[in-house]
């Protein structure tokens, strides 16, 4: 399962970076969406990842975590990260839309007026 998820994370990152490097603002936005999904999934994998992280909750009698327990901390982290990226990506969408209206093009090469002397 870890291997499959790792491959999915890699694919999401590859796709995201490819899209971010495109000139179209819409593709750029979609690339950011894919990248953030990749990042969330990567945190999910880190629960019992490269070096086993210790879960914060343990059984009172034995002092060890129950064998089928998931790490609750990563779930909290992912939830937080999803909420944040939801808000930010909505902002990017609105901004991209407004920019498209103001510039009249969704080509990043047309958006150089603030760089020109």
């Amino acid at each position: 399962m870890n291997l499959i998820l790792s491959l999915v994370v890699g694919t999401l990152f590859a796709g995201g970076i490819y899209l971010v490097l495109r000139r179209s603002v819409v593709k750029l936005m979609l690339g950011l969406v894919l990248l953030s999904h990749g990042a969330h999934l990567l945190i999910f994998l880190m629960g019992d990842g490269l070096i086993k992280a210790r879960t914060p909750f343990v059984r009172a009698e034995t002092g060890v975590a129950p064998p089928d327990s998931a790490d609750p901390l990563i779930q909290a982290l992912i939830l937080t990260a999803i909420v944040i990226s939801l808000g930010l990506l909505t902002f990017v969408m609105a901004l991209a839309y407004r920019t498209d209206q103001a510039v009249g093009s969704d080509d990043l090469n047309a958006m150089t007026s603030t760089d020109q002397l």
């Binding site: 808000g87 909505t90 969408m93 609105a94 839309y97 209206q101």
Partner: peptide
């Protein structure tokens, strides 16, 4: 508040 406001603002774009 935040979620509905976001949806409202996006939905109020006339051409969108």
């Amino acid at each position: 508040g935040v979620t509905t406001q976001l949806a409202l603002v996006l939905a109020e774009e006339p051409t969108l």
